[in-house]
Design a protein around this nucleic acid. Structure first.
Lengths: 160, 160
DNA sequence: TAAAAATAGATATGGAACATAACAATGACA
DNA sequence: TGTCATTGTTATGTTCCATATCTATTTTTA
């Protein structure tokens, strides 16, 4: 009776699933590519007992000694309350310290310890190596264009 | 005494935070661009009471009537247990149905309802419009190169 | 100079997307 | 006929995200 529907059902059984509608969107393709990058980053950082956000925070603190928590949250594009537990963990592991700011008793100046700087060196080297493998089949010209496109998209947010 | 450190602290106060180390990574730039795309998608879908995953599932089901849950999970690159609550919600809203498969009593054939197909049309149109705005400052050639780069990255996963 | 407003960091709580382990029912295969 | 694989599910936990609200402190305003 409903032979067209049955044909469609059989079609799905014997043919690949079509995601053509979604593939028209850059957002969907970016999500799928980011899944790969995120999984690779997660696997890479596991050896250092780091996650995406604790790694990012550590790198920004090493590169910007004296950074305030509010500055770090801005730089990472995350909400300030969500930063507290990240800083707590890095501090508990003695990778960073929360120094007081003499001129502003509300604020902390975040600084990396020697252990933090050493972990930074190893983690950044590992992430660099892994990302090189992921991008082995992309030439530098393409990567440059992709970087520029990401900047344009990031700035689209600031205009809306 | 520790005047160099104090100078660095003052430096952070008066200069922008540097994220140059992270900006060297495509993964970091992709994450930041994806934050923008995801926020825009979330805002766009809110009007239809959809989220990123329920929207994606609906689109794939409308385009592939008779799809199995395991096929859908593969197509969406998510774990099968995480699909259950997504399908539950779409079914509860009468956007899809779980049809039984006569030849395999374990499986369901997922099909969209009329309401589901109508919501698909409206949601896809809205997402199309919003993404066009996000990409207004990117030319088609650049978008094509970015799409191709994403494919290369997605395929890098299959090779590791 | 005191009050109001803003800022910095924190606690609490919840949502969404992600993961794994284990299970029952069913189908495929040797 | 027994073993292995598949399908969907329940249970549970992790990570990244959001908002509301609070206290202490600093800055601004009248």
């Amino acid at each position: 009776m409903n032979t067209e529907k049955q044909n469609l059902t059989n079609s799905t059984e014997t043919h690949a699933v079509s995601d053509a509608t979604l593939r028209a969107f850059i957002g969907y393709r970016m999500k799928r590519a980011f899944n790969v990058v995120r999984d690779d980053l997660t696997a890479t950082l596991r050896a250092f007992d780091l996650r995406m956000l604790t790694y990012t925070a550590l790198v920004l603190i090493v590169d910007n000694p004296g950074l305030r928590q509010s500055q770090l949250a801005d730089a990472m594009d995350i909400e300030r309350p969500n930063l507290v537990i990240i800083i707590d963990e890095l501090e508990r592991r003695d990778l960073i310290i929360r120094d007081r700011v003499p001129t502003d008793r509300r604020a902390y100046a975040l600084k990396a310890t020697l252990a933090g700087r050493q972990l930074y060196e190893r983690a950044v080297a590992a992430v660099t190596s892994h990302e090189e493998k992921l991008l082995a089949n992309l030439d530098q010209g393409t990567i440059k264009i992709v970087f520029d496109a990401f900047s344009v998209i990031e700035q689209a947010k600031r205009r809306t």
